[in-house]
């Protein structure tokens, strides 16, 4: 059995982001972490691999810095090997990332692809679904429990009003929710071993995706506009007046 898992680098949610002067992107001198949902995906892959004797592969897409997050976020925790696809993060959208993953699935033929349900930077929540569509595979998103039984994966999903249980046939795409598991810490032995594990470097050209364009482009980034201070009103009449003439919501 073979499991492909994503290891995406995201800006640390606690870091202060600074937007470039021209509003084109963020200043990349900022702390990054492994996407927390990808940590759940990695943990899921490791647990399934332990029970079902699977080979595990972690994929990261972006510039060379991404390799550190593949090694220390995934390989140091126990994932067997890594693949880094070199790409300019400003030239990527969910669609193109799904295409890259599809090409890797065709190259590696995994039985299961596990992704974080979304990345906490863009919060798009699209790649797993797009990948399943492109591959024509069944998908089970927002997994809070995953079990493999024969040629099926039994996935519990947290939905409004309760739990939904799905049985999807392999091969399949799963996206991980936070409550799926408690990601392990990389052990010291794992950190030392990670250096020696194979990490394949690919370019878009190697996947026949050279020249492929994203469908969505970032036009401009700007800080949220500041909120003006609140005011006290004397009575309901004044409130209605302000809501009508100033806030223009009535």
């Amino acid at each position: 059995m073979k499991i492909l898992v994503t290891a995406k680098r995201v800006t640390d949610p606690n870091a202060k982001l600074v937007i470039d002067d021209d509003g084109s992107w963020i200043d990349d001198d900022v702390e990054y972490i492994l996407n927390p949902f990808c940590e759940n995906a990695v943990e899921c892959a490791l647990q399934l691999a332990a029970d079902h004797d699977a080979e595990t592969i972690a994929v990261g897409i972006g510039d060379e810095e991404v390799q550190r997050y593949i090694r220390q976020g995934a390989l140091a925790r126990g994932i067997d090997r890594g693949i880094h696809v070199e790409a300019d993060e400003q030239e990527l959208d969910s669609d193109l990332i799904a295409k890259i993953l599809k090409a890797l699935v065709e190259k590696e033929s995994p039985d299961l692809v596990v992704l974080g349900k979304q990345a906490v930077d863009g919060d798009s929540n699209q790649v797993g679904q797009l990948l399943a569509e492109m591959l024509g595979w069944p998908q089970a998103t927002f997994a809070s429990d995953v079990k493999i039984e024969g040629d099926e994966v039994i996935v519990t999903r947290e939905v409004d009003g309760g739990l939904e249980k799905l049985a999807v046939t392999l091969p399949a795409v799963i996206t991980a929710d936070l409550r799926l598991n408690d990601p392990r810490y990389a052990s010291l032995a794992g950190i030392m071993k990670a250096k020696r594990k194979p990490l394949e470097e690919l370019e878009l050209d190697d996947l026949d995706l050279d020249g492929e364009e994203p469908k969505v482009r970032v036009v401009k980034l700007h800080e949220p506009t500041g909120r003006s201070a609140g005011v006290f009103v004397a009575d309901v009449d004044e409130l209605i007046l302000k809501l009508t003439t100033e806030a223009r919501v009535l």
Binding site: R71, Q72, Y185, A186, L188, I191, A194
Partner: peptide, 15 residues
């Protein structure tokens, strides 16, 4: 080295 940095980050996370 990268291992030292990874060690620091792992311990900091654990802490």
């Amino acid at each position: 080295t990268e291992e030292h940095l990874a060690l620091r980050e792992m311990v900091r996370d654990f802490v």
